[in-house]
Design a protein around this nucleic acid. Structure first.
Length: 423
RNA sequence: GGAGAGGUCGCGUAGUCUGGCCUAGCGCGCACGCCUGGAGAGCGUGUUUCCCGCAAGGGAACGAGGGUUCGAAUCCCUCCCUCUCCGCCA
Protein backbone atom coordinates (compact mmCIF):
# COMPACT_ATOMS: atom_id res chain seq x y z
CA UNK A 1 0.00 0.00 0.00
CA UNK A 2 1.18 3.49 -0.76
CA UNK A 3 1.46 6.25 1.79
CA UNK A 4 -1.69 8.37 1.57
CA UNK A 5 0.56 11.40 2.04
CA UNK A 6 2.38 10.54 -1.15
CA UNK A 7 -0.90 10.67 -3.04
CA UNK A 8 -1.82 13.99 -1.46
CA UNK A 9 1.55 15.61 -2.01
CA UNK A 10 2.73 14.02 -5.25
CA UNK A 11 -0.34 12.76 -7.09
CA UNK A 12 1.44 13.19 -10.42
CA UNK A 13 4.20 10.84 -9.38
CA UNK A 14 1.62 8.17 -8.61
CA UNK A 15 -0.28 8.82 -11.85
CA UNK A 16 2.93 8.49 -13.83
CA UNK A 17 3.81 5.28 -12.05
CA UNK A 18 0.45 3.77 -12.99
CA UNK A 19 0.94 4.84 -16.58
CA UNK A 20 4.40 3.26 -16.60
CA UNK A 21 2.75 0.05 -15.48
CA UNK A 22 0.27 0.28 -18.35
CA UNK A 23 -2.56 0.94 -15.91
CA UNK A 24 -5.34 3.46 -15.55
CA UNK A 25 -4.45 6.47 -13.38
CA UNK A 26 -8.05 7.19 -12.39
CA UNK A 27 -7.76 5.60 -8.93
CA UNK A 28 -5.49 8.46 -7.90
CA UNK A 29 -8.29 10.96 -8.30
CA UNK A 30 -10.74 8.65 -6.57
CA UNK A 31 -8.40 8.51 -3.60
CA UNK A 32 -8.01 12.28 -3.48
CA UNK A 33 -11.76 12.80 -3.68
CA UNK A 34 -12.51 10.25 -0.95
CA UNK A 35 -9.71 11.57 1.22
CA UNK A 36 -11.18 15.09 1.03
CA UNK A 37 -14.63 13.79 1.97
CA UNK A 38 -13.14 11.81 4.78
CA UNK A 39 -11.58 14.87 6.34
CA UNK A 40 -14.82 16.84 6.18
CA UNK A 41 -16.66 14.10 8.08
CA UNK A 42 -13.87 13.69 10.60
CA UNK A 43 -13.76 17.36 11.41
CA UNK A 44 -17.47 17.69 12.08
CA UNK A 45 -17.68 14.42 14.00
CA UNK A 46 -14.70 15.21 16.20
CA UNK A 47 -15.99 18.66 17.03
CA UNK A 48 -19.29 17.13 18.16
CA UNK A 49 -17.53 14.41 20.11
CA UNK A 50 -15.47 17.02 21.94
CA UNK A 51 -18.68 18.80 22.85
CA UNK A 52 -20.35 15.61 24.00
CA UNK A 53 -17.35 14.61 26.09
CA UNK A 54 -17.24 17.88 27.96
CA UNK A 55 -21.01 18.14 28.45
CA UNK A 56 -21.18 14.54 29.63
CA UNK A 57 -18.67 15.39 32.30
CA UNK A 58 -20.82 18.34 33.34
CA UNK A 59 -23.82 16.02 33.57
CA UNK A 60 -21.89 13.77 35.89
CA UNK A 61 -21.16 16.69 38.19
CA UNK A 62 -24.49 18.48 37.90
CA UNK A 63 -26.83 18.66 40.91
CA UNK A 64 -29.65 20.54 39.22
CA UNK A 65 -32.12 17.94 37.95
CA UNK A 66 -33.78 20.17 35.34
CA UNK A 67 -30.50 21.39 33.89
CA UNK A 68 -29.21 17.88 33.90
CA UNK A 69 -32.21 16.61 31.99
CA UNK A 70 -31.92 19.40 29.43
CA UNK A 71 -28.31 18.53 28.77
CA UNK A 72 -29.10 14.85 28.42
CA UNK A 73 -31.75 15.68 25.83
CA UNK A 74 -29.38 17.92 23.94
CA UNK A 75 -26.61 15.34 23.94
CA UNK A 76 -28.98 12.67 22.74
CA UNK A 77 -29.45 14.74 19.57
CA UNK A 78 -25.74 15.35 19.28
CA UNK A 79 -25.21 11.62 19.67
CA UNK A 80 -27.62 10.89 16.83
CA UNK A 81 -25.76 13.26 14.55
CA UNK A 82 -22.44 11.69 15.54
CA UNK A 83 -23.82 8.26 14.66
CA UNK A 84 -24.81 9.54 11.23
CA UNK A 85 -21.41 11.08 10.62
CA UNK A 86 -19.55 8.02 11.87
CA UNK A 87 -21.53 5.87 9.49
CA UNK A 88 -20.81 8.17 6.56
CA UNK A 89 -17.17 8.27 7.59
CA UNK A 90 -17.05 4.49 7.81
CA UNK A 91 -18.38 4.18 4.27
CA UNK A 92 -15.95 6.72 2.87
CA UNK A 93 -13.02 5.07 4.64
CA UNK A 94 -14.07 1.68 3.37
CA UNK A 95 -14.14 2.99 -0.19
CA UNK A 96 -10.84 4.80 0.30
CA UNK A 97 -9.20 1.70 1.68
CA UNK A 98 -10.64 -0.34 -1.15
CA UNK A 99 -9.16 1.90 -3.83
CA UNK A 100 -5.84 2.40 -2.05
CA UNK A 101 -5.45 -1.35 -1.54
CA UNK A 102 -5.33 -2.11 -5.25
CA UNK A 103 -2.90 0.62 -6.29
CA UNK A 104 0.46 -1.04 -7.04
CA UNK A 105 3.83 0.03 -5.71
CA UNK A 106 5.79 2.85 -7.33
CA UNK A 107 8.50 1.36 -9.56
CA UNK A 108 12.06 2.20 -8.63
CA UNK A 109 13.46 4.87 -10.99
CA UNK A 110 16.06 2.29 -12.10
CA UNK A 111 13.35 -0.09 -13.30
CA UNK A 112 13.44 0.14 -17.10
CA UNK A 113 10.39 1.50 -18.87
CA UNK A 114 8.52 -1.04 -20.89
CA UNK A 115 5.13 -2.16 -22.06
CA UNK A 116 5.12 -5.85 -21.22
CA UNK A 117 7.28 -8.91 -20.67
CA UNK A 118 8.81 -8.56 -24.13
CA UNK A 119 10.57 -5.42 -22.95
CA UNK A 120 12.22 -6.97 -19.92
CA UNK A 121 15.97 -6.49 -20.10
CA UNK A 122 18.37 -9.42 -20.22
CA UNK A 123 21.28 -8.39 -18.02
CA UNK A 124 23.51 -11.37 -18.71
CA UNK A 125 23.75 -15.01 -19.59
CA UNK A 126 25.65 -17.40 -17.39
CA UNK A 127 26.83 -20.80 -18.58
CA UNK A 128 26.70 -22.30 -22.02
CA UNK A 129 23.58 -24.16 -23.13
CA UNK A 130 24.57 -27.77 -23.60
CA UNK A 131 25.10 -28.99 -27.15
CA UNK A 132 23.18 -32.21 -27.69
CA UNK A 133 24.27 -34.86 -30.18
CA UNK A 134 20.73 -36.20 -30.10
CA UNK A 135 17.26 -34.67 -30.03
CA UNK A 136 16.61 -33.63 -26.39
CA UNK A 137 13.23 -34.74 -25.12
CA UNK A 138 10.77 -32.68 -23.10
CA UNK A 139 10.23 -33.67 -19.46
CA UNK A 140 6.74 -34.98 -20.17
CA UNK A 141 8.37 -37.72 -22.18
CA UNK A 142 11.38 -38.26 -19.92
CA UNK A 143 9.53 -38.24 -16.61
CA UNK A 144 6.93 -40.96 -17.27
CA UNK A 145 9.47 -43.13 -19.11
CA UNK A 146 11.69 -43.13 -16.02
CA UNK A 147 8.77 -43.66 -13.64
CA UNK A 148 9.36 -40.21 -12.14
CA UNK A 149 6.17 -38.41 -13.11
CA UNK A 150 2.65 -39.81 -13.44
CA UNK A 151 0.22 -37.39 -15.00
CA UNK A 152 -2.75 -39.78 -15.17
CA UNK A 153 -2.72 -40.48 -11.46
CA UNK A 154 -2.75 -36.76 -10.63
CA UNK A 155 -5.79 -36.27 -12.81
CA UNK A 156 -7.41 -39.42 -11.42
CA UNK A 157 -7.25 -38.45 -7.78
CA UNK A 158 -7.67 -34.69 -8.10
CA UNK A 159 -8.06 -33.26 -11.59
CA UNK A 160 -6.32 -31.42 -14.39
CA UNK A 161 -3.10 -29.58 -13.64
CA UNK A 162 -2.25 -32.05 -10.89
CA UNK A 163 0.42 -34.74 -11.15
CA UNK A 164 2.10 -37.35 -9.02
CA UNK A 165 5.85 -37.64 -8.59
CA UNK A 166 7.03 -41.16 -8.12
CA UNK A 167 10.16 -43.01 -7.01
CA UNK A 168 13.27 -41.13 -8.16
CA UNK A 169 11.06 -38.20 -9.24
CA UNK A 170 9.67 -37.68 -5.77
CA UNK A 171 13.07 -38.23 -4.26
CA UNK A 172 14.78 -35.81 -6.64
CA UNK A 173 12.33 -33.06 -5.73
CA UNK A 174 12.85 -33.75 -2.04
CA UNK A 175 16.61 -33.62 -2.64
CA UNK A 176 16.28 -30.25 -4.34
CA UNK A 177 14.23 -28.87 -1.45
CA UNK A 178 16.58 -30.15 1.24
CA UNK A 179 19.68 -29.04 -0.63
CA UNK A 180 18.31 -25.55 -1.32
CA UNK A 181 17.27 -24.99 2.28
CA UNK A 182 20.74 -26.00 3.46
CA UNK A 183 22.33 -23.71 0.88
CA UNK A 184 20.22 -20.76 2.03
CA UNK A 185 21.09 -21.48 5.65
CA UNK A 186 24.77 -21.25 4.64
CA UNK A 187 23.95 -17.98 2.87
CA UNK A 188 22.73 -16.56 6.17
CA UNK A 189 19.02 -17.28 6.20
CA UNK A 190 17.09 -18.81 9.09
CA UNK A 191 14.80 -21.67 8.14
CA UNK A 192 11.12 -21.39 9.00
CA UNK A 193 8.38 -23.95 8.75
CA UNK A 194 5.04 -22.16 8.59
CA UNK A 195 1.36 -22.99 8.29
CA UNK A 196 0.24 -23.54 4.72
CA UNK A 197 -3.11 -21.94 5.47
CA UNK A 198 -3.49 -18.38 6.67
CA UNK A 199 -6.17 -15.86 7.52
CA UNK A 200 -7.27 -13.08 5.21
CA UNK A 201 -5.37 -10.39 7.09
CA UNK A 202 -2.09 -12.20 6.44
CA UNK A 203 -2.81 -12.26 2.73
CA UNK A 204 -3.67 -8.59 2.81
CA UNK A 205 -0.34 -7.78 4.43
CA UNK A 206 1.62 -9.51 1.70
CA UNK A 207 -0.48 -7.77 -0.97
CA UNK A 208 -2.38 -10.82 -2.22
CA UNK A 209 -5.77 -9.63 -1.04
CA UNK A 210 -8.00 -8.09 -2.14
CA UNK A 211 -6.59 -7.83 -5.66
CA UNK A 212 -5.66 -11.46 -6.30
CA UNK A 213 -8.53 -13.17 -4.54
CA UNK A 214 -9.47 -15.06 -7.71
CA UNK A 215 -6.13 -16.86 -7.70
CA UNK A 216 -6.50 -18.21 -4.16
CA UNK A 217 -8.05 -21.31 -2.66
CA UNK A 218 -10.35 -20.46 0.21
CA UNK A 219 -11.86 -22.74 2.83
CA UNK A 220 -15.18 -21.10 3.58
CA UNK A 221 -15.98 -23.19 6.62
CA UNK A 222 -12.95 -22.05 8.63
CA UNK A 223 -12.32 -18.92 6.56
CA UNK A 224 -8.72 -19.97 5.90
CA UNK A 225 -6.77 -19.48 2.71
CA UNK A 226 -4.16 -21.76 1.14
CA UNK A 227 -0.87 -19.94 0.67
CA UNK A 228 0.07 -19.09 -2.94
CA UNK A 229 3.71 -18.63 -1.87
CA UNK A 230 5.75 -18.80 1.33
CA UNK A 231 6.18 -15.06 0.96
CA UNK A 232 2.72 -14.71 2.51
CA UNK A 233 3.29 -16.49 5.84
CA UNK A 234 6.84 -15.12 6.06
CA UNK A 235 5.58 -11.54 5.73
CA UNK A 236 2.91 -12.37 8.27
CA UNK A 237 5.38 -13.59 10.88
CA UNK A 238 6.08 -10.00 11.84
CA UNK A 239 2.74 -8.29 11.28
CA UNK A 240 2.28 -5.53 13.86
CA UNK A 241 5.82 -6.01 15.17
CA UNK A 242 8.31 -3.30 16.06
CA UNK A 243 11.96 -4.38 15.70
CA UNK A 244 14.96 -2.91 17.44
CA UNK A 245 17.27 -1.59 14.76
CA UNK A 246 20.06 -3.84 16.03
CA UNK A 247 18.00 -6.95 15.28
CA UNK A 248 17.79 -6.12 11.56
CA UNK A 249 18.20 -7.42 8.96
CA UNK A 250 16.22 -10.65 9.38
CA UNK A 251 16.77 -13.23 6.67
CA UNK A 252 14.38 -16.16 6.41
CA UNK A 253 14.00 -19.14 4.15
CA UNK A 254 11.08 -21.52 4.01
CA UNK A 255 9.83 -24.40 1.99
CA UNK A 256 6.10 -24.55 1.35
CA UNK A 257 3.80 -25.95 -1.24
CA UNK A 258 2.05 -23.17 -3.15
CA UNK A 259 -1.59 -23.28 -4.20
CA UNK A 260 -2.89 -21.26 -7.11
CA UNK A 261 -6.12 -21.43 -9.04
CA UNK A 262 -4.44 -20.08 -12.20
CA UNK A 263 -7.74 -18.73 -13.49
CA UNK A 264 -5.77 -16.05 -15.33
CA UNK A 265 -3.78 -18.59 -17.29
CA UNK A 266 -6.49 -21.11 -18.10
CA UNK A 267 -5.41 -23.09 -21.13
CA UNK A 268 -1.77 -21.97 -20.91
CA UNK A 269 1.08 -24.36 -20.23
CA UNK A 270 -1.37 -27.21 -19.68
CA UNK A 271 1.14 -29.85 -20.67
CA UNK A 272 3.77 -31.11 -18.26
CA UNK A 273 4.51 -29.83 -14.76
CA UNK A 274 5.40 -26.24 -15.59
CA UNK A 275 2.21 -24.71 -14.26
CA UNK A 276 0.16 -26.63 -11.72
CA UNK A 277 -2.38 -25.72 -9.05
CA UNK A 278 -0.01 -27.07 -6.44
CA UNK A 279 3.74 -26.76 -6.58
CA UNK A 280 6.62 -26.68 -4.15
CA UNK A 281 8.94 -23.76 -3.67
CA UNK A 282 11.79 -22.69 -1.42
CA UNK A 283 11.55 -19.00 -0.66
CA UNK A 284 13.92 -16.36 0.66
CA UNK A 285 12.61 -13.36 2.55
CA UNK A 286 14.31 -10.35 4.16
CA UNK A 287 13.17 -7.66 6.58
CA UNK A 288 15.67 -4.78 6.64
CA UNK A 289 16.23 -1.07 7.11
CA UNK A 290 15.26 1.07 4.10
CA UNK A 291 18.86 2.09 3.44
CA UNK A 292 19.89 -1.58 3.27
CA UNK A 293 17.32 -2.83 0.82
CA UNK A 294 19.26 -2.05 -2.37
CA UNK A 295 22.19 -4.12 -1.16
CA UNK A 296 19.88 -6.87 0.08
CA UNK A 297 18.27 -7.14 -3.35
CA UNK A 298 21.68 -7.76 -4.89
CA UNK A 299 22.51 -10.29 -2.21
CA UNK A 300 19.30 -12.16 -2.76
CA UNK A 301 19.78 -12.17 -6.52
CA UNK A 302 23.29 -13.54 -6.05
CA UNK A 303 21.97 -16.18 -3.66
CA UNK A 304 19.34 -17.28 -6.16
CA UNK A 305 21.91 -17.35 -8.96
CA UNK A 306 24.16 -19.57 -6.88
CA UNK A 307 21.38 -22.10 -6.74
CA UNK A 308 21.27 -22.35 -10.52
CA UNK A 309 25.03 -22.27 -10.85
CA UNK A 310 25.58 -25.01 -8.29
CA UNK A 311 23.07 -27.20 -10.12
CA UNK A 312 25.09 -26.63 -13.27
CA UNK A 313 22.14 -25.11 -15.11
CA UNK A 314 22.74 -22.44 -17.74
CA UNK A 315 20.69 -19.40 -16.81
CA UNK A 316 20.11 -15.76 -17.58
CA UNK A 317 19.26 -12.81 -15.38
CA UNK A 318 16.58 -10.39 -16.46
CA UNK A 319 15.40 -7.14 -15.02
CA UNK A 320 11.67 -6.69 -15.29
CA UNK A 321 10.38 -3.56 -16.99
CA UNK A 322 7.63 -1.39 -15.52
CA UNK A 323 4.94 -3.08 -17.59
CA UNK A 324 5.74 -6.53 -16.19
CA UNK A 325 6.61 -5.60 -12.63
CA UNK A 326 4.62 -7.35 -9.91
CA UNK A 327 1.98 -5.55 -7.86
CA UNK A 328 4.06 -4.97 -4.73
CA UNK A 329 7.49 -4.67 -6.29
CA UNK A 330 9.66 -1.63 -6.87
CA UNK A 331 12.35 -3.56 -8.69
CA UNK A 332 12.57 -7.20 -9.74
CA UNK A 333 15.12 -9.59 -11.20
CA UNK A 334 13.95 -12.80 -12.82
CA UNK A 335 16.24 -15.75 -13.21
CA UNK A 336 15.48 -18.11 -16.05
CA UNK A 337 17.00 -21.47 -16.89
CA UNK A 338 17.14 -22.95 -20.33
CA UNK A 339 14.88 -25.87 -21.05
CA UNK A 340 16.30 -27.80 -24.01
CA UNK A 341 13.25 -30.03 -24.26
CA UNK A 342 10.69 -27.24 -24.27
CA UNK A 343 13.10 -24.97 -26.14
CA UNK A 344 12.30 -22.03 -23.89
CA UNK A 345 13.56 -20.10 -20.90
CA UNK A 346 11.82 -21.05 -17.67
CA UNK A 347 11.37 -18.51 -14.91
CA UNK A 348 12.60 -20.32 -11.80
CA UNK A 349 13.16 -17.34 -9.56
CA UNK A 350 11.84 -13.84 -9.12
CA UNK A 351 13.65 -11.60 -6.67
CA UNK A 352 11.97 -8.34 -5.64
CA UNK A 353 12.45 -5.34 -3.45
CA UNK A 354 9.02 -4.29 -2.22
CA UNK A 355 10.27 -1.25 -0.28
CA UNK A 356 7.78 -0.33 2.44
CA UNK A 357 4.77 -1.51 0.41
CA UNK A 358 4.20 -4.69 2.40
CA UNK A 359 5.39 -3.33 5.72
CA UNK A 360 2.79 -0.57 5.53
CA UNK A 361 0.06 -3.11 4.79
CA UNK A 362 1.24 -5.45 7.54
CA UNK A 363 2.38 -2.68 9.90
CA UNK A 364 5.95 -3.84 10.41
CA UNK A 365 8.29 -1.25 11.87
CA UNK A 366 11.58 -0.78 13.62
CA UNK A 367 12.81 1.64 16.23
CA UNK A 368 15.98 3.50 15.18
CA UNK A 369 18.97 2.93 17.46
CA UNK A 370 19.21 6.65 18.18
CA UNK A 371 15.59 6.56 19.38
CA UNK A 372 12.71 8.58 18.03
CA UNK A 373 9.66 7.51 16.08
CA UNK A 374 9.30 4.03 14.69
CA UNK A 375 9.77 3.68 10.93
CA UNK A 376 8.45 1.22 8.38
CA UNK A 377 11.08 -1.24 7.27
CA UNK A 378 11.66 -2.70 3.83
CA UNK A 379 10.88 -6.23 2.70
CA UNK A 380 12.32 -8.36 -0.08
CA UNK A 381 11.28 -11.73 -1.38
CA UNK A 382 12.77 -14.17 -3.80
CA UNK A 383 12.30 -17.71 -4.90
CA UNK A 384 15.12 -19.95 -3.88
CA UNK A 385 13.74 -21.68 -6.91
CA UNK A 386 10.37 -23.09 -7.83
CA UNK A 387 10.50 -26.86 -7.83
CA UNK A 388 8.63 -28.03 -10.90
CA UNK A 389 10.57 -25.77 -13.23
CA UNK A 390 13.86 -26.61 -11.59
CA UNK A 391 12.96 -30.26 -11.88
CA UNK A 392 12.14 -29.76 -15.56
CA UNK A 393 15.50 -28.09 -16.11
CA UNK A 394 17.41 -30.83 -14.32
CA UNK A 395 15.64 -33.60 -16.24
CA UNK A 396 16.03 -31.95 -19.61
CA UNK A 397 19.57 -30.64 -19.18
CA UNK A 398 20.95 -33.83 -17.67
CA UNK A 399 19.29 -36.30 -20.04
CA UNK A 400 21.39 -38.81 -21.91
CA UNK A 401 20.85 -40.33 -25.31
CA UNK A 402 19.64 -43.57 -23.70
CA UNK A 403 16.90 -41.73 -21.80
CA UNK A 404 18.68 -41.81 -18.42
CA UNK A 405 19.30 -38.78 -16.23
CA UNK A 406 22.56 -37.88 -14.53
CA UNK A 407 21.94 -36.60 -11.01
CA UNK A 408 23.70 -33.25 -10.41
CA UNK A 409 26.60 -33.76 -8.00
CA UNK A 410 25.29 -31.47 -5.28
CA UNK A 411 22.07 -33.48 -5.00
CA UNK A 412 23.63 -36.93 -4.69
CA UNK A 413 23.95 -36.90 -0.88
CA UNK A 414 20.15 -36.61 -0.74
CA UNK A 415 19.71 -39.28 -3.42
CA UNK A 416 21.44 -42.01 -1.50
CA UNK A 417 24.48 -41.57 -3.72
CA UNK A 418 22.57 -42.42 -6.90
CA UNK A 419 24.48 -40.96 -9.87
CA UNK A 420 22.19 -41.90 -12.71
CA UNK A 421 18.47 -42.45 -12.93
CA UNK A 422 17.70 -45.19 -15.40
CA UNK A 423 14.44 -46.77 -16.51
C1' G B 1 -16.02 -31.23 21.64
C1' G B 2 -17.21 -30.32 27.37
C1' A B 3 -16.03 -27.46 32.02
C1' G B 4 -13.43 -23.49 34.20
C1' A B 5 -10.00 -19.16 34.37
C1' G B 6 -8.22 -15.24 31.69
C1' G B 7 -6.82 -11.29 27.53
C1' U B 8 -5.56 -3.57 30.43
C1' C B 9 -0.04 1.67 28.15
C1' G B 10 7.56 -2.97 26.62
C1' C B 11 6.95 -6.85 30.89
C1' G B 12 4.07 -7.90 35.51
C1' U B 13 -0.25 -6.17 37.66
C1' A B 14 -4.55 -2.66 39.91
C1' G B 15 -9.18 -1.00 38.21
C1' U B 16 -14.59 -4.36 36.23
C1' C B 17 -19.17 -6.44 41.42
C1' U B 18 -21.06 -0.47 42.77
C1' G B 19 -20.67 3.29 34.60
C1' G B 20 -18.62 9.62 35.15
C1' C B 21 -12.98 11.97 39.50
C1' C B 22 -9.62 5.98 34.55
C1' U B 23 -5.82 6.86 28.70
C1' A B 24 -5.90 4.47 32.96
C1' G B 25 -2.68 3.75 39.25
C1' C B 26 1.53 0.78 41.05
C1' G B 27 6.05 -2.29 40.33
C1' C B 28 9.81 -3.67 36.85
C1' G B 29 12.40 -2.26 32.57
C1' C B 30 14.18 1.75 29.59
C1' A B 31 15.85 7.09 28.66
C1' C B 32 17.55 11.68 30.50
C1' G B 33 19.08 14.74 34.67
C1' C B 34 20.99 15.38 39.76
C1' C B 35 24.36 13.06 43.03
C1' U B 36 29.52 10.30 42.38
C1' G B 37 36.61 10.07 41.20
C1' G B 38 33.62 6.32 38.47
C1' A B 39 29.63 2.99 39.11
C1' G B 40 25.65 1.47 42.15
C1' A B 41 22.08 2.95 45.45
C1' G B 42 19.10 7.17 46.07
C1' C B 43 16.31 11.38 44.20
C1' G B 44 13.79 13.79 40.09
C1' U B 45 11.72 13.87 35.17
C1' G B 46 10.11 11.25 31.14
C1' U B 47 8.51 6.70 28.74
C1' U B 48 1.93 3.61 23.60
C1' U B 49 0.05 4.14 18.85
C1' C B 50 -2.99 6.16 15.12
C1' C B 51 -5.97 10.19 13.17
C1' C B 52 -7.77 15.64 12.30
C1' G B 53 -5.48 20.49 12.64
C1' C B 54 -0.76 25.90 10.25
C1' A B 55 -1.17 26.01 15.39
C1' A B 56 -3.63 26.09 19.92
C1' G B 57 -6.00 22.06 20.58
C1' G B 58 -9.05 17.92 19.66
C1' G B 59 -10.61 12.74 18.43
C1' A B 60 -9.86 7.34 18.73
C1' A B 61 -7.91 2.69 20.83
C1' C B 62 -8.21 -1.39 27.63
C1' G B 63 -8.35 -8.94 22.43
C1' A B 64 -11.99 -7.85 17.85
C1' G B 65 -16.83 -6.37 16.42
C1' G B 66 -21.77 -4.94 17.70
C1' G B 67 -25.44 -3.06 21.51
C1' U B 68 -27.38 -0.16 25.94
C1' U B 69 -26.34 5.01 27.81
C1' C B 70 -25.83 12.02 28.00
C1' G B 71 -21.37 9.09 29.26
C1' A B 72 -18.47 2.20 28.87
C1' A B 73 -11.90 -0.74 30.62
C1' U B 74 -16.44 -1.25 33.73
C1' C B 75 -23.26 -3.50 31.76
C1' C B 76 -25.34 -6.89 27.48
C1' C B 77 -24.48 -9.93 22.83
C1' U B 78 -21.30 -12.36 19.06
C1' C B 79 -16.56 -13.84 17.71
C1' C B 80 -11.10 -14.64 18.33
C1' C B 81 -7.01 -16.05 21.27
C1' U B 82 -4.28 -18.03 25.76
C1' C B 83 -4.05 -21.26 30.08
C1' U B 84 -5.94 -25.58 33.28
C1' C B 85 -8.79 -30.10 33.57
C1' C B 86 -11.73 -33.79 30.87
C1' G B 87 -12.96 -36.20 26.21
C1' C B 88 -11.36 -37.52 21.30
C1' C B 89 -7.46 -38.21 17.93
C1' A B 90 -2.28 -38.58 13.87
Amino acid sequence: MLDINMLREQPDLVRQSLVKRQMDAAPVDQVLELDAQRRVFIQEAEQLKAERNSVSKEIGRSKDAAERQAKIEAMRLVGDRISQLDEQLRQVEESLHGVLSVIPNIPDPRTPLGKDEDENVVLRNVGQPRQFDFEPKPHWDLGPALGMIDFEQGVKITGSRFYVLSGPGARLQRALIAWMLDLHIRQGYTEKYTPFMVKAQTLFGAGQLPKFQDNLYHDIEEDLWMVPTAEVPLTGLHMEDVFDEASLPRLYTAYTPCFRREKMSAGRDVRGIKRGHQFDKVEMYIFCKPEESDAMLEKMRTDAEQTCAALGLPYRVKQLCTGDLGFGARMTYDIEVWSPGLQEWLEVSSVSNDGDFQSRRANIKYRPAEGGKTRLLHTLNGSGLGMPRTLIAVLENYQQADGSIIVPKVLRPWMGGVETITP
